[in-house]
Computed example of a mutant assay.
Amino acid sequence: MEETAQHARVLTDDDATTYAGWFKALGDPMRVRLLHLLASEGRPMAVGEITDRLPIGQSTVSHHLKVLAEVRFALPERSGTSNQYAVNAACLDCFPAAVRAILGQP
């Protein structure tokens, strides 16, 4: 165990700030559910479609999507006059790597 800690990379201030932002964005259970919905669907979804699938109103869905988009967990795609949102596939690699870095694992 000691050897693993010796090989862990240093957690920079920038990394710590980024990771804290990610966890803050996931600090709301509805945002976790929303991200799960986007990931499960595996395709861009319109706000109205998301609203139909979750027990919250459109303005709340839009707010949660804005928070998730700010940390790049959700990516907006322009579709005519509105946006559709898809999960950022890079999160599948980046988020587990962040957890390992926070825990001091290589």
Rank of each mutant, 00 (worst) to 15 (best):
R53M: 04
G80L: 09
K66W: 06
A5C: 00
K24F: 06
A90Q: 10
T12R: 08
R78D: 09
M1V: 05
F23K: 01
A98F: 05
T60F: 04
L103F: 08
A5E: 09
S79W: 11
A101T: 09
T4I: 13
A46D: 08
Y85A: 02
Y19M: 12
G42T: 10
A74M: 05
R33A: 12
C94M: 10
S59K: 15
A69M: 06
A8W: 01
E77R: 12
L65G: 05
V47A: 15
P55E: 12
E2M: 15
A46V: 00
D15P: 01
S82H: 08
V47L: 13
L37F: 00
P76W: 03
R43Q: 09
V47Q: 09
D14V: 02
A16N: 04
R78W: 05
L35H: 09
G21M: 07
R43G: 02
G21E: 08
L11P: 02
K66P: 02
I102K: 03
D28W: 00
A46Q: 14
G27H: 11
D52E: 15
A86S: 12
A98S: 12
R100F: 04
E2K: 13
L37P: 10
E2A: 15
S79G: 08
V87N: 00
K66M: 14
A101D: 03
V10P: 00
N83T: 03
R43V: 05
K66E: 13
P29T: 13
Q105F: 10
R31C: 00
E2N: 13
S40N: 11
I50S: 03
V87W: 02
A16Y: 00
V61S: 03
T18H: 02
R33Q: 14
V71T: 14
R9N: 01
L75F: 05
Q58V: 14
V47C: 12
S79A: 15
A74S: 13
N88M: 01
D14C: 03
R43F: 01
L38M: 10
E70R: 12
M45N: 05
N88F: 06
P44T: 10
L54I: 13
P96R: 05
D13R: 10
G42P: 06
L54P: 10
T17E: 14
Q6K: 12
R72H: 05
A20L: 14
P76H: 07
L68D: 04
Q58L: 14
A39P: 00
R100Q: 05
V61H: 00
D93N: 08
Q105C: 07
K66V: 04
D14E: 13
M45V: 02
H36G: 10
M30S: 11
E49D: 15
A46W: 09
L34A: 10
D15R: 08
V71N: 08
L26T: 05
P29A: 15
A8F: 03
A69L: 05
E49K: 08
A89W: 02
A8R: 03
F23H: 01
